[in-house]
Amino acid sequence: MSARDAAPADVDAPVVDVRTRRGLTLSELVLLTVLAAVFGFLYWALVQAWGALQLAMGPFGDLAQHVLVGGWMVVAPLALYIVRKPGVGAVVELAAALVEVAFLASPVGPMLLVVGLVQGAGAELAFTLTRYRRYGWWVFVLSGVTAAVASTLLGMVRSGWHLQDLFALRVALQLVSGVVLCGLLARVLGDALVRTGVLDETALGRAWRARVARDAAAPARATGAAGDGAPA
């Protein structure tokens, strides 16, 4: 059953599937850069909201960043959930930061690139530990925690948070925000997006379609949820 047996008369070369390529495909690269652009834009909008919240909180304005910090890291676990390849979390977070700095002129300045890379790598750590194979809820919770820890360590180096008052409160706020606004939100967002069909040609889309097909094939479980988002 060699390929040569199957070769038609008009072609001599063996039949080789060209789809098998390692690394990121062009579709994945575009998906990731566009995610970075959209989230860079949303992050930038969040920075404007942060400014307002800081002013509203007066002398405690500095704490506002801990409430919102998870929101600035959400694209890393989302990208990992969709593409499921090593490195994409850190890179997409870095690219989102680049969009904020280079194209939207973020007031945080170029240090944001470092922040983005550290936060993205932090969020990715949870997926690295599970070897990019598990995407259950708890992995996303863990991702929120690792992202918050990385971000806190960076804050200690950059701004000496551990030398200031309220360090314990800062850490607690960072953790809660990381778990809710980064980890869990990424999973919720990914699940909603895959239902719309725009992610059909991604690892997440393939996994989802396989599950829908399995559910539909098992009559005992074929409830509303199974037929639910079946391609129309």
Partner: peptide, 24 residues
């Protein structure tokens, strides 16, 4: 089978088997 502009686009991977893309 599909062939376009002298390039083989799609060909069976074996007799009676599904076809695979052979040119990117």
């Amino acid at each position: 089978r599909v062939q376009v502009a002298g390039r083989r686009v799609l060909a069976p991977s074996g007799p009676g088997r599904p076809s695979v893309p052979t040119t990117t």
